[in-house]
């Protein structure tokens, strides 16, 4: 005969069932471990252009360098509204290049091309915030031309689905 726990004298045994929680935690952990890509110096936080019916394709991962045209942050623009649409600096990988030092950008692009896996097929990806004015992008294009690059990629949002 089974004795009723309700009628058992003394304090009740309170047991917290951990098993489903641990199951969920493991599922979440595996999801994050598989999907996380650690922050890369190539991807500065910015709003890249989102064209209508975007033709942007999945990015190539190898034999390329990424030039980021970094905008001022919102708080920096609020401090000084003339910064709106202006490039703060250029970034080639983790290397920060001032906007008035284009010789350095040309030198670094040439160096990146020379040391790449296949210098003939070397491509530079131009990653710029959509609010940046073209006259702050044009010097980067000129630097790419001076570095004797024939092709480039423009970073844009991909079409969903």
């Amino acid at each position: 005969m089974v004795k009723s726990r309700v009628n058992k004298p003394g304090p009740a045994d309170l047991a917290f069932n951990m098993t489903p929680m641990i199951d969920c935690v493991f599922q979440l952990l595996i999801f994050f471990m598989l999907t996380t890509q650690m922050a890369s110096a190539d991807f500065v936080n910015m709003r890249v252009p989102k064209p209508d019916w975007s033709q942007a394709k999945k990015p190539a991962e190898e034999n390329k360098a990424v030039v980021n045209v970094v905008p001022y942050t919102q708080s920096e623009i609020e401090e000084d509204s003339t910064r709106n649409g202006i490039a703060k600096e250029y970034k080639l990988g983790s290397l920060v290049i001032k906007t008035n030092n284009m010789e350095k950008l040309v030198t670094e692009l040439k160096k990146a091309r020379r040391t790449s896996q296949d210098p003939k097929e070397f491509v530079v990806e131009l990653r710029a915030d959509k609010s940046i004015r073209y006259d702050h992008i044009e010097p980067v294009l000129q630097a790419m031309q001076q570095a004797e690059l024939g092709r480039m990629y423009i970073t844009a949002m991909r079409e969903q689905g």
Binding site: L28, R151, M152, T155, A156, Q160
Partner: peptide, 21 residues
């Protein structure tokens, strides 16, 4: 992972040619 994870937007590339200098 919950705190450090920042989902990246779905970026892509459009190929372009540069003028020959």
């Amino acid at each position: 992972f919950l705190l450090a994870c920042q989902f990246r937007m779905d970026e892509g590339q459009i190929a372009a040619n540069l003028p020959d200098l």
